[in-house]
Design a protein around this nucleic acid. Structure first.
Lengths: 243, 243
DNA sequence: CGGTATGTTGACAGTGATCAAGAAAGGTGG
DNA sequence: CCACCTTTCTTGATCACTGTCAACATACCG
């Protein structure tokens, strides 16, 4: 199999289900994040030559454990990945979620500092770090793709780190707006991850997450269609909570 | 002036004072972060050709305001820089401090999302973003320097974001250990920034920062020589608070 | 030497964590 | 398709940590 084609087969209404299928063949396409600009076929082909996979992981399975050698870098094809650290008291902090098209697990250290887990069933591509680096040394487009990926992740976590001194309401609003953007939804969000995952990402308890969603619903900013399905009724008001 | 030489003139015991002087001349050296590996003269010279400055900023002055065009990237030569956002209620979140040798202000957006301010008196080099990018396209070493800088900043803020669900004691311990590492001190730290800055970085109030330092002192983990001078008496115990 | 900025400590209040119970959703096997 | 079980989510009561307000102490600077 030389190429991977990702084909959307249905609207992702049911969570934890694959809604893409992977087709072997030629004339294929990867998630759009992969294509930095039109005409960068070289970069794409070069990067693809270092590809392994895609590999499927079931929800809640570990892709990488804390302390594992950082030999590989990954890309989500389908599903949501979480990168997290578990503390001795059992508490867990989720540093980031990764959505389809995102490269993740890039680091300048020898070992992964965070564990990488499937937050939903996922399809993952693997890239050997050393291979990617040596390709980047030859192909300028690949180097700039790596830089762009890292810069984008940096911007994203910087925004997330602004939540450190903010209220539960603000944290949840920020999360919902961000998720809507990343899932490319305007109003209705199907939460792909559990409330526990959301809580661990926002530094709150699940109870507070639940209560805050209720509070936002009472204020008519959102509507809970079901536990995992939320309607953004007033994006502008939600955004005002962040400022 | 074609080169910048940074010479350490005295131990930085007094805060808010320059303890480096800048000397014009040849055969000069930049902070070591600049030199990716031995023999990368080309990268260094290429980058230096895009240099403007150094420019001096007084403590608490703004280098960049939120929303300013992201035309320039910066490097600290001396002092400490903070990047922060101020909210409508007057609260402020400091996303990162930058120490000498660090490149900062790199982004993939057109505008800076955070303001950049001098936390102490500082010396700053300016680099035109576009120039740096076009050099990186030719000089592979420059590209990998940019990637290394961004990756390093990403790793750092990821570690910081782990504090989101942690106690005040843990946040302060983490800050002190990190600062000691970055200032290259083993035991005695002269805090270069105010408690207010520390509080805004850790998402705590100044009162809690003060109380937590007192608490750590009572537990014999640290010793307060003066308000801005702290002795790490038991690094191992401090580190255990983080796990 | 005096005034301002910064840091420390105490009393109290509020947000969010914890503990506990119940409700809803999903999965499995008949 | 339904019964049952497990997981996940919701809501309430209480508690603890940290924020706020206030007063005082100390350091810095002209």
């Amino acid at each position: 199999m030389d190429h991977v084609e990702v084909v959307k087969t249905s609207k992702p209404t049911t969570r934890h289900r694959f809604f893409y299928k992977v087709v072997a063949g030629s004339g294929s396409s990867l998630p759009s994040a992969f294509i930095i600009e039109d005409g960068q076929k070289l970069a794409k082909r070069a990067v693809l030559s270092a590809r392994r996979g895609p590999i499927r992981f079931r929800r809640n399975s570990s892709i990488v454990c804390e302390g594992d050698p950082a030999d590989y870098v990954f890309m989500v094809i389908d599903g949501i990945v979480r990168r997290c650290k578990t503390f001795q008291n059992g508490a867990r902090a989720i540093v980031a979620f990764h959505t389809p098209g995102e490269l993740f697990g890039w680091t300048d250290e020898l070992k992964h500092a965070l564990s990488i887990e499937a937050a939903t069933n996922v399809l993952i591509l693997f890239f050997k770090r050393s291979a990617l680096l040596s390709i980047a040394a030859r192909e300028q487009k690949v180097a700039s793709f790596l830089l762009a990926s890292t810069t984008s992740e940096l911007r994203h976590i910087q925004e997330h780190s602004l939540l450190i001194n903010r209220s539960a309401k603000c944290r949840v609003a920020s999360f919902l707006l961000d998720l809507a953007t990343r899932l490319d939804e305007t109003t209705d969000i199907d939460l792909p991850m559990s409330h526990q995952d959301i809580a661990d990402h926002l530094g709150l308890s699940i109870e507070t997450v639940s209560r805050t969603i209720t509070e936002l619903e009472r204020a008519f900013l959102i509507e809970r269609v079901s536990a995992r399905s939320i309607l953004l009724k007033n994006r502008a008001a939600l955004a005002r909570l962040l400022v």
